[in-house]
Each structure stands twice: as C-alpha cells, then as structure tokens.
Computed example of a mutant assay.
Amino acid sequence: MSTATLPAATHVAGATVEFRGLRRSFGATTALDGLDLAVQPGELLALLGPSGCGKTTALRILAGFESHDAGEVLVDGEPITSIPAHRRDAGMVFQSYSLFPHLTAADNVAFGLRMRGTGKAERRARAHELLELVGLPQHAARYPHQLSGGQQQRIALARALALKPRVLLLDEPLSALDAKVRLSLREEIRRLQQELGITTLFVTHDQEEALSMADRVAVLRAGRLEQCATPSELYARPATAFVAEFVGTMSRIPAERAGGGTVAVLGRRHAVDGALPADGPLDVLLRPENVRLAPAADGPALVTAASFLGAVTRLTVRLADGTEVKADLPTEAAAALPLGGRADISLPERPVLVDRRTAASDRA
C-alpha cells in the first residue's frame, strides 16, 4: 500500500456514533439486549466477542441492512432509523469481499459513484485516487478472479471509501485471508484509517486483531456490553471474569475467603481487585505473566507442558488437586524447569481478580 501523503480531498471528518438501548431478537433468540455504546470521531472501535454475541447485528443495524426492535442509533447526534441504507453515508467491507466479478478493479471502486450519477471523468479520477491509496493502481484493469484475496479485500476497502463515508464498517474483513496476508493488511487498514481520520467500527472474534488495531475494544456477550476500554486497560483491568478469560489467557486457581475482603491462594493472603462474590466457592484468575515458578524438588507444582514462544516459554503446571496453571517465564529461566520437574509456585504481592467458581461449560 502506498505511503504517500493522502490528497486533501481524501480526508474526512470523523462522525460520532451512538447505540442507545438497542434491542433485536430473531424469534426466541436475543441478538442485542439493550446495547449502549458510543464511538468517538475518528476512533477505531473493535466489537469483540464470541459467535452469536450480537456484534455483526449491531453493525448491520448501523448500516441499515437490519432493523431493530427498540432503542435508537445516532450519527452525529441525529437518529438514522428512518434513513435507508443507501443514504446513511456509511461504507461497509465484508468478509467475503463481495466484488462484482464482471467489473474491473477500477469499475468496482467506482460503482457507488456511478449509482449516484457522478460523471465518467470524475469516477475515473476518484477510482485512480483510491487505487493509489490502497497500493493497487497497476491492477485497475484486472477482474476479481485475477486478484489475490488480499488484493480483492483492498479493492473492497477502496470501494467503501469512494463515496467519502462518515463511518467505515468492517465486518470480519480479514478472516478469509491467510495469516501472513492478514497481519500485513490489518496494519495497512489501521494506518489508512488513522490518516483518513474516519470513524471506524471493526467486527472481529479475533482478540489479537482487536487489541492490535483498535483505539478501544467493546467486548460483547449475549447481546450485552461487558466492557469497553483501551486494549491495555481491557487486558490489565478486565471488568468481569468473562472479559478476563476472553481477552488473553487466564488460569483459575481455587481460593478461600480469608476475611477483611481478602482471599487465601497458594498459601498466602491477597487483597481482592474489585468486588468479592457474596457467597459460594471462589477462584482466583491469573495471567501467565503473573505466575512465578522456581525449581524445587518437593514443590507443589508439576511441570506438564512447555511451549517455546521465543524470548518467553509458556509452562503448564499441575497442582495437587489437578488444577492446571499456565506461567510465562524467560526462556532461559524455563530451561531449569524440565517436563516432569517440580516447582514452587507463587503470585506477586498485588490484588487478585476473583470470580465465583463455576464449571467451564457455564463460562462459555
């Protein structure tokens, strides 16, 4: 993709987007259950969550491709429910590219302009400008079947931008691409979005994509917003156990109430980060980088697996009660803990995230 300075005419003013109490059901299935969410001008907001959480439904309602049962959607403070999809000033890029197979790359980019009655010369100039923007000017005369998947998705992105929309909507646009192309294209999309200043909503179920691309990430579960925060805050201070386990890797270790708002885990008392459940057995939730291991012939943890990750090696250890815990150690330190070896295990002196103990199937 070109790294040249963008033409002034290409820049757009980012719009605000608001979902207020948005509800949508399909028969007995509730897709959105009172979604409240605001997107700031020029922000890239990722909608993240498991399949069926409502993220694509929210995007389609914003685009005008889907109706809603209650609530409202506003763009720059104005309700848009009564505005048809083709007049909502939103560009959408789909997972499946959705290019017209009988049109060249340039004609695909210019299609929306043609539908608006834009003159031929202006259409050609705009298509060339957008093809330059996505780094494919030399492919203007090619048809979709003559392009790779990554190239087709760039053409789809250029087409979405051709009408200078106030909002750009990306519905899992990278999931059909191989890993190397996906990594390259997500970096290019992010750079382009920042340079254009366009408000963007990005739907994905891939946490790595969300955390690496977004200004903020909204985690949805069963049609409800669990948390909306910056990637670093989402990872370091998850608001709920669901967010903690969905974003990044978490281990659960049984804990006991120790009084004074503390819990006992691995033989030590720790303050609780957030609310302590009123009753029932407890688990402490731990990131791998917050688990400490040290070789000990009679230690309580048995090393059962190791995954080399470069500078870090992720070890899996099993405690006496069968609990499995993951720990990230510098690879040099991990070498002292071979498979079948034993280790002492401890936690940093900091508050811990606690959740009511439940079966794994109930946390899905």
Rank of each mutant, 00 (worst) to 15 (best):
P7M: 06
S96L: 04
F202K: 01
R114G: 14
S307R: 12
R142H: 12
R23H: 06
E209F: 09
T249F: 10
T200E: 02
A333T: 11
R123G: 00
A58R: 06
F19R: 03
A327L: 07
A239R: 06
K55D: 01
L6F: 08
E187A: 15
Q227T: 02
V203E: 02
A15Y: 00
L147Y: 08
E289K: 06
P338D: 11
F26R: 02
N108E: 06
A121T: 14
G135S: 08
F100D: 09
G274K: 07
E332I: 13
D76E: 11
S98A: 14
D171I: 03
H139M: 13
Y235C: 10
A294S: 13
A301K: 03
E256T: 14
P300I: 10
A28N: 04
L183D: 15
R114W: 14
E226A: 04
D279M: 15
E289S: 09
G119N: 12
V75W: 01
E129R: 05
R357P: 15
A8Y: 09
L282P: 12
L177N: 08
I345S: 03
R350A: 14
D107R: 10
G267V: 07
V73K: 06
A241R: 08
L6T: 01
R166K: 05
G64S: 10
G260L: 09
V352H: 03
L6P: 01
G267D: 05
G64N: 05
G135I: 07
H139F: 15
A343D: 11
L62F: 00
A160W: 00
F242N: 05
Q194A: 11
E43L: 01
R126L: 00
K164H: 04
T200P: 03
A255N: 08
V312D: 07
A255M: 09
I345D: 05
R224Y: 07
I198V: 00
R154T: 05
D215R: 06
Q95W: 08
S82K: 14
E66I: 04
A244F: 01
V109R: 00
S98P: 10
L220N: 02
E43R: 03
A335T: 14
P348V: 07
R123N: 04
A38Q: 08
I83W: 08
D89H: 09
A125C: 04
R224P: 02
M1P: 11
L48D: 05
C53P: 00
Q193Y: 00
L74M: 12
A218T: 00
L211T: 13
D178Q: 11
D362T: 12
A255R: 10
D107Y: 03
